[in-house]
């Protein structure tokens, strides 16, 4: 039984075949990257995993359990967290509050207890803060802890989004273009963190990325997509030298 399996996934929006017959497996503890030109269907695969859309056909299994067909909010409970290509943070809340929302799946208290803020709620709140603080330390966000997200620079927001996802305590982390919009320095930090996710935290990473140097640096395996279809699957080097992949990116070479 593999850790994560996508089986013959397809989805169509009206006439657009966004994803067609895509199958792949992700092993526990690896960094698996999906690449492909714009509109290849990479984000759509993430949306299928998040159960935002039901697939037209195919299924998704996580730790041996089929997740397609579950209610979308259940995905987080299973231990799958994601970031979004166009940052989706809780803008009018502080960084800390954003991370605390990430602790939602660890909620232990009932509504009536919360209304009275009874001791169990206080204890749980302190525990949530400790967990959030660990992630803040890990990603060097101390400086921004109490800032409102809406005012933060793009690069920081990107890190906050990763932090929020990590606070959920995921087993599988989906990253949609983690380095897009970052400067080389921030991008380098991101690469380090992705490596640490895998090495130190033991989190499996499924990532979409355009920056090929980052991809080669952190990925164990790479899947190339074009127009919703699988082109090649293998190590970063194998995929990059595959003639069909080169053709998809550069057009047909005569």
């Amino acid at each position: 039984m593999s850790f994560f399996t996508a089986e013959n996934l397809s989805i169509q929006f009206g006439g657009v075949k966004a994803v067609t017959n895509v199958s792949f497996e992700v092993e526990r503890g690896e960094v698996f990257t999906i690449i492909g030109p714009n509109g290849a269907g990479k984000t759509t695969i993430f949306n299928l995993i998040s159960l935002i859309y039901p697939p037209t056909s195919g299924r998704i299994l996580f730790e041996g359990q089929e997740i397609t067909g579950l209610a979308p909010h259940r995905v987080a409970n299973l231990g799958i967290a994601r970031t979004f290509q166009n940052i989706e943070l809780f803008e009018h809340a502080t960084v800390l509050q954003n991370l605390l929302i990430g602790r939602h799946t660890h909620r232990t208290t009932a509504l009536w207890q919360e209304l009275l803020f009874l001791p169990p709620v206080r204890r749980a709140e302190i525990a949530h803060r400790e967990a959030a603080e660990k992630v803040i330390d890990f990603l060097d966000l101390q400086h921004y802890r109490d800032s409102f997200v809406a005012g933060l620079p793009y690069g920081v927001r990107k890190v906050v989004e990763l932090a929020r996802a990590l606070t959920t305590g995921p087993k599988l982390q989906l990253l949609d273009e983690p380095s897009s919009g970052l400067n080389p320095e921030e991008s380098d930090d991101m690469a380090f963190w992705i490596e640490d996710l895998k090495k130190d935290l033991g989190i499996t990473v499924l990532m979409v990325e355009h920056d090929m140097s980052l991809v080669s640096r952190v990925s164990d395996r790479v899947l190339a997509l074009n127009q919703g279809e699988m082109l090649a699957l293998g190590t970063s080097r194998e995929v990059q030298s595959d003639p069909r992949v080169i053709e998809a990116y550069l057009g047909k070479q005569e």
């Binding site: 935002i52 979308p72 809780f90 809340a93 929302i101 939602h104 209304l115 803020f117 949530h128």
Partner: peptide
């Protein structure tokens, strides 16, 4: 009290981004 507890934060999450609130469970 409610607003400084998980339920209150879930409300704020829904207000600011339904899609990521959902992905937070």
């Amino acid at each position: 009290n409610l607003m400084r507890s998980p339920t209150g934060r879930a409300f704020v999450a829904i207000r600011d981004s339904e899609i990521s609130a959902q992905s937070m469970g």
